[in-house]
Design a protein around this nucleic acid. Structure first.
Lengths: 216, 216
DNA sequence: ATACCTCATGAATATATATTCATATCAGTT
DNA sequence: AACTGATATGAATATATATTCATGAGGTAT
């Protein structure tokens, strides 16, 4: 299966008013400065309580400037998520590709997941907190987790072929189970203000997936 | 360990303006009518997009009436969550108490959890979506999941004593793992508009907790 | 019949803040 | 130096809606 993340970026076609020069601006330094500032403010206050003025101040620009780069407040969040999603999924795909067998792939995926979220706490908080928004907004983003789940499906199926994973697994359930548990671990880490090392949870977590808690 | 849910209700002491007659009003039919309407509206639109007028209309009362029963919009959500939390935890405690051994208790807990959320989809959606809010609001509510995690700790420890669960488990991780996975499954069900039977996931899920996915 | 209390109403108020736009700055070009 | 286009500014505007409060209705006791 081919996992493409392009659709997150490309199919997004709110028609901005200023049209033409957008392509250059998207890459501009200021665009990213605003995006990062927005990330910090959203993470701290939540999307609704965050104000345009706060974001502008943190980015060191005037309020009106945001509207040269973004359609509106919603758009800022949308772009933030799209941008982060793209980067993270590329890394995840790479990580999985490096694994030789199913178990390896799974370990790489989970470690990468935890690593990326640990590296970018704002992102972690926003992905945690703005679930609601993600649900409401543009439909393409709805399945942020879709590709992740597809990755997992592939790994599990490979494991079943290898014979390293049980044949009787209900894949649909197993993948939610795995993703849910990682997110739970991240969520806890976020609540704890990121005070401990998240990545070190990766292997113990995978061990649980594989062997469960039952005594021998 | 004794799990008390009382604190969720009792320690909440915003001083309402009308003081004296509150006790009666808290139980009144209209209070609950508003609370349920609020639940429906919050679930449909999310806390911030929901308006007082919508809630009032759905409850069949005037806007101003809400302020006879609740301090403000925040308070409505707070009370909703407190109320639901209390009920659900009582049921969970009862369910766990009925189990004889650790595995049984775990099965009862998970089944109860899924059952209650399936029965009250508004609650499920709100618990899913308003994470952010739960984090910001009054500190007592922060640990909505605290008691749940404590329940799990007890079960796991019992399992270790029984010898039915591995001795080398990192309980702190295991309990997040279990809760995260249940929440993930619920989250998926919510996204799917609750079209399938959630409770039937309980036993397969617990099987995964216990035995993992590894082939024999 | 009157006074009194509780509860309900919904139009009027107050506030917050997202968004716009007339104006300014600056770089490069002629 | 004057012109042009792109970019930036931030005060002014528009809007939405949470919250208040003067008013009323219904019941009960005096």
């Amino acid at each position: 299966m081919i996992l493409t993340v392009d659709r997150f970026m490309n199919h997004y076609s709110f028609d901005r008013k200023k049209g033409p020069k957008d392509l250059q601006k998207n890459k501009s330094e200021k665009y990213h400065k605003i995006l990062n500032s927005a990330g910090a403010v959203f993470a701290e206050f939540g999307f609704y309580k965050a104000t345009i003025s706060q974001i502008a101040a943190k980015a060191g620009v005037a309020d009106g400037t945001l509207y040269l780069y973004f359609k509106n407040k919603d758009d800022i969040l949308y772009q933030f998520i799209s941008f982060k999603t793209q980067i993270v999924f590329e890394k995840m795909n790479t990580a999985v590709a490096k694994g030789t067998n199913a178990e390896n792939k799974l370990r790489n995926l989970i470690r990468c997941h935890l690593q990326e979220f640990q590296n970018d706490k704002n992102m972690a908080v926003i992905f945690q907190s703005e679930v609601r928004y993600l649900r409401d907004i543009e439909s393409q983003i709805k399945d942020i987790s879709k590709m992740y789940l597809d990755l997992l499906s592939d790994i599990i199926e490979q494991g079943q072929i290898e014979g390293t994973m049980r044949q009787d697994l209900f894949v649909g359930l197993v993948k939610r189970f795995i993703l849910g548990a990682v997110e739970g671990v991240i969520s806890t880490w976020v609540s704890a203000q990121g005070r401990y090392d998240l990545v070190s949870m990766a292997d113990p977590l995978v061990d649980l997936y594989l062997s469960g808690v039952k005594g021998s």
